[in-house]
Design a binder for these strands. Structure first.
Lengths: 341, 341
DNA sequence: ATCCGTTTCCACATCGTTTTGCGTGCATGC
DNA sequence: GCATGCACGCAAAACGATGTGGAAACGGAT
């Protein structure tokens, strides 16, 4: 008695052929109710699980998709991942989150990812090298880009309305009487920095005011960047009444430095961020910011992928979805609840 | 001219047999320098990548391992993931981070994970059902547990020295003259809560003092839990001079509530947390806590898995590794740098 | 009884690897 | 010259699934 394994074992104990079992599993062809029952019984009895390798070998599909992020310790990305799972799990796909460790690590990891033959890849990349872009394109893997267009033929992308968010921030600040408003961006060459500054400008224009370019400094998207940014701004002048930061981490760093200089937030100067990471609500005073709908970004990206994977979307035009953002006003731009006299 | 694909195509253009190409790839048997060169040239020319499905079908290995976490938005887990990657990537393994979404979601995801036939699984689970434990055990997949013993034959686990950490916290507080010390735990039935309280008790005992059980309340491991915990403690008495919290989130919530009651931290009451998540340094005043070496936990877990996967560790006794923790003193237990007068 | 259309199942080829067991050709020892 | 040993490559058999072309069984119509 040779010990069969896999689908063959199931076929044997059910007293049917291998192909019939496969049919029952895939529902590809009609199977009579009687044999279907026999097969299912055998499957349950043996605790059978199809071998994904064998399956993908034939079907050329893995039923799993990858999310490739530059830094999983950035609290923004876990939320994106959760959003993708919301959509993918019910559709029978498994989401693997892969951490490149840094922007530069992306290329190194990309090779591993492509080797694994995921059905689809979602990635958030700031600088994708031409070589990597080519590898992605010729791999034939479905790709959806997060945050910006990745420049691959036929790959959709989803981003949030950065400019609109900063316009709302600007209006909020101008509406509360602030006029000497500085802006601390991330890396100067980065798309987000430029878009976000653009939104602020728009708010000024809308109020019939001029935005002074000398109110802008660029550093990096980190807490340290925020500290440096404040230092740079205060070298130019010292009468700022609001500081707009390109993301929450910068804002938190800026608050550190402002406090160190003996300034009170928001009485002397208001501070705003972007993203609405958890920490924004935790700092003291809590940070006025704009909600960057990470989870919704994830959901949308997953839906785009699923549509493409369904196949009939192969020739559909490239999709570009922009999600709207929401202003979240907290204590860093309004007077905090009086607590120490 | 039939269009071969995969290894057969490589074999053809290199003018060798399929098996020879495989040998070159795996280095399983010696191959002459000349043919090795020919094969490598062909591989490069065709941009060949082995099909992981076919490979795992034969070799029964996937070269990828999974990290299953209850909630990827908890900042602790991304660090664990990064630590695992540190070790796994150089070893040629791909790490997939899988988010169960909640403790209860673990079971649902576990099925998907086992189906995927990962070579190894690392999981951090508080309550694993017996059914799931059985599924894991009989799947034959290598398992390493994080944080606690998972009770599966032959599965190693790694945890951090919670009790030691809380002993250090207790000594620190007692050493600065605090005596009326309250403890806010997470869920009462959870192992961590009990272990951590035990560490605090130990500090009292070491100083020849008695710890009063009436100083303990249990809530949940969240920020809301911290608020509730403070409320509960202050119903018992109002002269606390320190509050020890079972993790940083609780501590941050506790600070919210203390502040709302008009108390000053640390002048009126000191607060401590556990884990040293980023937010601990961001809150104001910054939080004294204990570093829970998440990244090192990840590294260790990965090493344990690799050892088992190497095969010769099959019969080795179960390993139980405890990592030491480090006290991080910040402003919430010392007087902050005078900044307003 | 014959024929035909459905339904239901099966045999078999196939996917791309790994792996074992042999067959070469060549130098070596006698 | 002839057995012996080595170093290299190759053929072929798995691995576990999918899916197509057909064969068998079954009714109903003629």
């Amino acid at each position: 008695m040779t010990q069969k394994s896999g689908i063959a074992a199931v076929a044997e104990t059910a007293g049917v052929s291998v192909s019939t079992v496969s049919q029952v599993l895939s529902g590809n062809r009609p199977v009579s109710e009687a044999t279907r029952a026999k097969v299912n019984a055998a499957i349950a009895e043996l605790g059978y699980t199809p071998h994904p390798g064998a399956r993908s070998l034939r079907s050329r599909r893995t039923e799993s998709i990858a999310l490739l992020v530059p830094d999983i310790t950035n609290p923004f990305y876990p939320l994106v991942a959760v959003g993708m799972q919301d959509v993918l799990l019910p559709a029978g796909y498994l989401l693997s989150i892969l951490d490149a460790g840094s922007q530069s690590g992306t290329g190194r990891l990309l090779g591993h990812v492509l080797e694994r033959r995921f059905d689809g890849i979602a990635l958030h990349i700031d600088g994708l090298s031409d070589a990597d872009r080519a590898r992605l394109a010729e791999s034939g893997t479905r790709v959806v880009a997060l945050g910006r267009d990745i420049g691959i033929e036929g790959s959709d992308y989803v981003e949030s309305d950065d400019a609109g968010g900063f316009a709302k921030l600007g209006e909020h600040l101008l509406g509360t009487g602030r006029r000497r408003i500085g802006f601390i961006g991330g890396e100067e060459e980065s798309d987000p920095s430029r878009l976000r500054l653009g939104g602020l400008r728009q708010a000024f224009a809308g109020a019939g005011l001029d935005y002074d370019d000398a109110s802008t400094v660029f550093t990096s998207f980190t807490r340290d960047g925020g500290r440096d940014g404040v230092a740079a701004l205060y070298e130019r002048r010292t009468d700022w009444d609001a500081i707009v930061c390109a993301n929450d981490l910068i804002a938190i760093g800026a608050m550190d430095e402002l406090r160190r200089r003996g300034l009170s937030i928001p009485d002397d100067v208001a501070v705003t961020g972007y993203d609405d990471i958890d920490a924004a609500a935790l700092v003291h005073p809590s940070l006025t910011t704009v909600e960057n709908p990470a989870r919704e970004i994830g959901r949308t990206a997953a839906r785009l992928l699923l549509t493409r994977l369904a196949g009939d979307g192969d020739d559909a035009p490239t999709q570009h979805i922009t999600l709207s953002t929401r202003l979240v006003v907290r204590d860093s731009t309004t007077s905090p609840i009086p607590q120490e006299r």
